[in-house]
């Protein structure tokens, strides 16, 4: 039974696209058939973060409008064969996404894949609503920062009221993914602590992704961090998040960088 997962946040720049790519690649590495769908019409970036930007021929809007078949628009990842990308359109025509068209495409994706991961645009308007409408599960990406937490609260409210499941009176599984977390600053009282955010938002925690230079490196390379450096702290956080999504019960921890011998020597030599 396919699951549709929306990665959403309200606020921009908190790590939705990075997390979509990382979670998608991590799930696909377990052998699941995964598609990541970019709903950010006009400002697509998932293709770039996934390193597929040079291979885009058709996009979600072409499929919604019937100009291309779904199979023609899907881009198969070159590194993980069970991972595909459905890019967004770069044209500015946001109204081209009709609810009926999106519903048709989502039905077709559900037949082909085990996981359909929708990367939501920022904001709470039409695009974000369409991205979350068909979701069975939601990952709410939040930074430990006041405006992000406030916007996440708003999005959680929308997930409980405007989605298809909510309208049918069914439950939508919501998960909190705390990103750009700095345990040292939280310990010093300079940053909201995990417990603070959890208490305010009161949805279950999927994982804590620490602030890491590996995340920028991954997007520079166009490779999800769970592929570019699977043993890095953020990648381990995403791998654990994926296991929780699959129903495993794991204790939450904040992964930290494991320093190899080389790093250790290197750090010493420049210190």
């Amino acid at each position: 039974m396919a699951k549709v997962l929306v990665v959403t946040s309200g606020k921009g720049g908190v790590g939705k696209t990075t997390s979509t790519a990382a979670l998608g690649a991590a799930l696909a590495q377990t052998g699941k058939n995964v598609v990541v769908v970019d709903f950010d019409v006009g400002l697509r970036n998932l293709d770039l973060v996934m390193g597929a930007e040079r291979r885009v021929v058709f996009d979600l809007i072409n499929v919604v409008q019937g100009d291309a078949k779904l199979a023609q628009a899907l881009i198969r990842d070159k590194r993980v064969e069970t991972l595909s990308i459905l890019p967004a359109s770069q044209t500015r025509d946001k109204d081209a996404l009709t609810p009926e068209g999106v519903a048709r495409v989502m039905d077709e994706l559900r037949e082909k894949f085990d996981w359909v991961i929708c990367d939501s645009p920022a904001g709470i308007e039409r695009g974000a609503q369409l991205a979350m409408y068909h979701a069975d599960e939601a990952v709410v990406v939040t930074n430990p920062e006041v405006s992000s937490v406030r916007d996440s609260d708003r999005i959680i409210g929308m997930l409980d009221s405007t989605t298809e499941r909510a309208k049918k009176g069914e439950k939508i599984n919501k998960h909190l993914l705390l990103t750009r977390y700095d345990p040292a600053r939280a310990a010093r009282g300079e940053m909201l602590r995990t417990e603070d955010v959890l208490e305010i938002l009161s949805i279950p925690l999927l994982g804590i992704v620490p602030e890491s230079e590996e995340v920028l490196r991954a997007s520079n390379l166009g490779t999800p961090v769970t592929l570019s450096n699977p043993s890095s702290a953020p990648a381990r956080a995403y791998f654990e998040a994926v296991r929780r999504l699959e129903g495993e019960k794991l204790d939450i921890s904040v992964p930290s960088e494991r320093k190899g011998l080389f790093d250790w020597l290197f750090k010493r030599s420049v210190a």
Binding site: L48, E53, R54, L216, R217, N220, G222, F266, V270
Partner: peptide
Amino acid sequence: FLASLFGRKTSAPVARDRLQIL
């Protein structure tokens, strides 16, 4: 310099090239 000496390529030049083409 040290990083490139020891084989780990820096990623920013890759990012720049990708963006320029795109």
